[in-house]
Amino acid sequence: MSGVARKIRFQDARVEMAHGAGGKASRRLIDGLFAPILFGPSWEPLGDAARVDVGGARLALTTDSFVVHPLRFPGGSIGELAVNGTVNDLAVSGARAVAMVAGYVLEAGLPTEILEAEIRAMAGAAARAGVTIAGGDTKVVEHGKADGMYITTSAVGRVIPDLEISPARVRVGDQVILSGPIGDHGITILLARGELDFEAELRSDTRSVLPLVEALARAAGGAVHWMRDPTRGGVATALNELSLDCGLAIAAEEERIPVRDAVRGACELLGLDPLHIANEGQLIAVVARDSAEAAVAALRETPGGEYASIFGEVIAHPAGAVVVKSAYGGSRIVDMLVGDPLPRIC
């Protein structure tokens, strides 16, 4: 894509919720408006973190904002998400988070008790992930303007030497690996909002995926070609982005995608596809065929990776698309999510 001046292609008159949902509209906004203005003509497909070399040190830099309702949910809270999410963006870019700064937008009237709980949640998550929270900033806005609190975290990480993560390295025949069951976080949040009158035994999977990345680096090193943590927009969106960025296709086998029964059940009832549901503690890795089994074995020995499995393969056609095959012989194209997943009733 380099060498050609890039035009602003974003035509929407105003920002809609869909532009923030992590799917197609988000990508159009980034590719069509941000990238051409900020990154100019030489531009690589955007990963989860930017790479910078400072005085010979290879570093990675990323930032992420967290807006979640409710602030606390089974298995986690906004504070934990804010640390893990940014640690994970660096991890799947092949970097170990070293230091983090955080910005807080707080709503007037927020009980101190809740704020303290989130600060503690951040401290705990940072300790577990081995990252130092080195500074921060606080702003307060009027009541009713920030859903309680918003958090932005930015972090710098050191590149893990053996890893070279880029869609350009993905080849036909590479195997696609998931670290564990998908959809836990998104369905947990949907149910925690209390708008749907049913319950399930589910917890958010929010965690640092760095141990999983390190296990992959040890077991497969340079054979790991691409990684992504499938957050908003789910596995489907992450794989579609990969297929567009590498110009190849992904064939997934439905029955090899790990999904808990509670998530499947909720998705069947609500007319949702688990592939579109957000995760906060899983990763997708594309690994050269010869090293794939070893990579899965290493993931399975790492906490959080017990259910890792190979669920797909990189193929040549249909380029830019993701095909999911069922055990009984049917196949379908799985697109990026359009907007947020909404329950389907009638």
């Binding site: 064939a251 056609h317 249909p318 698309a321 095909v323 196949s331 799985v334």
Partner: peptide, 12 residues
């Protein structure tokens, strides 16, 4: 969503 790119590009 599910079909037309399959038809357009030729499914594997």
């Amino acid at each position: 969503t599910f079909e037309h790119r399959k038809a357009a590009v030729g499914a594997p």
